[in-house]
């Protein structure tokens, strides 16, 4: 069975004097991979929202428009 190679937490984080290099490497690794896992989920969320909005828009345009009193013609007038 492999044994824990360090004497306590502080010794583990010190990495035998190589803390800066080891933790910079692992830090970059985790940040980049976290971004890679976040990105497709974020894009999926956006895509589904977009496609759903399009679906409801289409459903509305395909069904007959609700009867509605003719809206008064509005023309933008200067100074209004």
């Amino acid at each position: 069975m492999p044994e824990f190679q360090f004497e306590g937490v502080a010794d583990f984080f010190a990495m035998g004097g190589h803390a800066y290099f080891v933790w910079m490497s692992y830090g970059f690794f985790f940040v980049v991979l976290a971004f890679n896992l976040w990105l497709p989920r974020h894009q999926r969320f956006r895509l589904l929202r977009l496609l759903r909005a399009r679906q409801t828009r289409q459903a509305r345009s395909e069904s007959p428009p609700p009867a509605r009193a003719a809206a008064p013609e509005t023309t933008p007038s200067p100074g209004a």
Partner: peptide, 8 residues
């Protein structure tokens, strides 16, 4: 030789 640095 490399100590704990090799863990990369």
């Amino acid at each position: 030789q490399m100590g704990d640095n090799f863990r990369i």
